[in-house]
């Protein structure tokens, strides 16, 4: 696993260095710039949705067997309203614990 971490570290450094170091001041071509704008939302969506609708590998919206879905919906509502990472973590975890205890 450490080897993979080092590989990721080197790859990440190279993306950071890219235009500053090797490519000099060359302008970023439009074909590259446009997709890069959607990396963040696409990646985050691809991480978050499976984690809340299928934490055990099967799609499950029922609060009794998968409290993470309802807890995620509550956390999303809080995230839209407050935009504060600490508040989102606190409310989301509290919702999970309460649902876990209730159901």
């Amino acid at each position: 696993m450490l080897g993979a971490v080092i590989a990721i570290g080197i790859g990440t450094y190279l993306t950071r260095l890219s235009f500053i170091g090797a490519f000099g001041e060359r302008e970023m071509p439009a074909w590259l710039e446009r997709p890069l704008r959607y990396v963040a939302p696409a990646v985050l969506g691809a991480i978050v949705l499976p984690a809340v609708v299928m934490p055990d590998g099967v799609i499950d919206f029922a609060p009794a067997s998968n409290p993470r879905f309802l807890a995620g919906v509550i956390a999303a509502a809080v995230a839209i309203r407050f935009r504060n990472i600490t508040v989102v973590i606190t409310v989301g975890m509290a919702a999970l614990w309460i649902l876990d205890g209730l159901l």
Binding site: P41, L44, R83
Partner: peptide, 29 residues
């Protein structure tokens, strides 16, 4: 996922950004 959820909200403020997140999520599922 809660951390990622908090990071997600600010980047889905445009229509294409929102679509990227929704499609990304559905296809990942």
């Amino acid at each position: 996922p809660l951390v990622f959820l908090a990071l997600l909200i600010p980047v889905v403020q445009t229509r294409p950004g929102l679509l990227a997140a929704v499609v990304g999520g559905l296809v990942a599922v």
